[in-house]
Design a protein around this nucleic acid. Sequence first.
RNA 1: GGCGCCAUCGUCUAGUGGCUAGGACACGUGGUUCUCAUCCACGGAACAGGGGUUCAAUUCCCCUUGGCGCUACCA
Length: 494
Amino acid sequence: MRNMAPRTRVRFAPSPTGFLHIGGLRTALYNELLAKHDEGDFILRIEDTDRSRLVEGAVENLCRSLEACGVVPNEGVWLDKKGEVTQRGDFGPYVQSERKDKHQTYAKQLVKMGKAYHCFCTTERLEELRAQQQLEGKPTMYDGKCRSVPHEEALKRMEAGESWVVRLKLPKEGNVTFFDSIRDDITFDWSVIDDQVIIKSDGFPTYHLAATCDDHDMEITQVIRGEEWLSSTPKHLFIYEAFGWTPPKFAHLPLLLNSDRSKLSKRQGDVAVEDYLKKGYVPEALLNFVALLGWNPTGDREIYTHDELIAMFDIAKINKSGAVFNTEKLDWLNAQYLKSMSEERYLELTHPFVADATDDNSFADRCLLLVRDRVEKPSDVTELTDFFFRDNLDYSTVSIAWKAQEASAAKERLEAVRDAIEGLSDTDAMNMATVESTIKGLIEAKGWGNGDTLWPMRVALSGKEKSPGPFELAAAYGKKKTLERLEDALKFLR
RNA sequence: GGCGCCAUCGUCUAGUGGCUAGGACACGUGGUUCUCAUCCACGGAACAGGGGUUCAAUUCCCCUUGGCGCUACCA
C-alpha cells in the first residue's frame, strides 16, 4: 500500500518561438526524470499565448528534438506517425491558445472577487510613467491608476470601445514566503511586485495567468522551470490563493551559462539541440552530459544510462548555482559513447560524414573503424578519413623520410615494402596481422629498424605525418590501392 | 536603481562541524609506440574576502565583493 500521495504530474511548457534550447532540454529532462522516477506523468504543453512571436514549425521541431533525445512525454502534445502535431490525454487541450476561453473566465472571476481589475492605461502613458520613474531613480512599476476605477465605469468604458487589459490587484504591504524544492524558503515583499497584466488587449492571457490556471487544471504537482521565473512566483501564488487552490511545489533550476558566465546564448556558440544532433553528437551522450549540468547523484561517476538517471534522480540534490555549458567534456563523453557502442551503430552514425567517392561501402566501413579511436564526434571523420578517398596524395608538405633518414634510404625501404606486398595474395594483403608479420619479417631479415621502414611506409600510404598505423592502412586499402600509393610515393621521391 | 538568487581546482562537480578537501574534463610528465590517437601511471590545480558562533569551520550566522536573474500587454 504505497502512493498515498497524489500521482506525480509534471510538465515541460516551452513556447514555440524557435528551436529547443539546450537549457530547455535539461528542463524537460529533469521533469521527465522526476515523472519516471515517481511513475507519474510527464506532459508537454505548448505556451503560445504571445501571438506575435510564433514561429512556423517550432512545435514540430521541439517535439522532434525531444524525441531524438528520448525525452518523450506520455501526455499532451506529440507528433503522430505522419509527423503531424496531435494531442493526447484527459486534461486537454494542451496547446495554450486553445484554452483562451478558460483563461478569460478565470480572469473574470478574479475581477469579480476583487483580485484583479480592468486597466485602460495606454502604452504611451505607461512608457511615460516608466521614463519618469527611471529619471527619479524609482523602481519602475505601474502606479495603480485604474485600481480604483469602479466596476460600473469599467464596463461602460469597455462598451464604448476603449482598449483594456486585466491586471492583478496585488497586496501593497506584507510579504509572501514560499518553499522552493531546490532553494528552500524564499520571501518577497508585496510592495515590490507589480500589478501584472494577466489578460492582454488582444484577449490572450499572459504567461502568469495561463501557466498558473493550466497547471492547476492539469493537476500538476511539481513545477520545474528555469530560475528566471523565481521572482514572478509570488504572482502565481496569489492566483492560487485567490481561487483557494493548492499550489504545486516549485523548483527553480539554475541557469546554463556561456563561458563568460552570462546566460547561455546563441552569440557564443550553438545552443539548439538540433545543432548538436546535426553535428552527429550521440543523443545519449548529450542527454548524459546535460543531466550532469546542475545535478549529480554521486560525484565520482560520469556515465549513466537514461534508466540509471531515472532511478537515481533526486530533485533535492539539484545545484543552486549556474553551470557553464562547456563542450570539452561533452566531446570526451561523446567519444566514450562512440567507443563503447556497437560497430553497426558507430558506422551508421559516422557514415553520413565520410567523403565517400566510391560505391564501395565496405571500404568506407573499414576506414571508419580504423579511425574510431580518434573520433570525438561523428563530424570529425570527414577530416580524419579524407585521405583514404583521394586519388592522389600530396607528399610535398610531409617528410616521407624518417627523422634524419636519407631520401635514398627511404626509397630503398619503400621498394622493399612494395615488393613484399606484391608477393601477398589479395586476401592476405587485406589482413592486418599478415601484413604486419610480412613487413616485420622483412625488417628483421634486412636488419633494418622499425622507424626507418614503418614511417616511410605509413606516410606513403596516408600522406600525413600523423595517422593510423601502416599495417592497418594497408589492410584497409587492399593490395591494389596499397601498391598504387607506394608507387606514388616512390615517384615523388625520384 | 529596486528586489531576489548564487559563490569548492580553468570547467562540471563530491562534501552537509573534525577529511592530507575526493572524482571527471582540460592541461603537464612518463610508459606502450614509426607518428598521432587510444590505453595505463603519475603530477600541478580550489573552499572569493572579512567578521562572528563553536573546543573545532569549506560546512552555521552576518557583512563586503563578485556573478546572474527579474523589474513588458515576452515567455
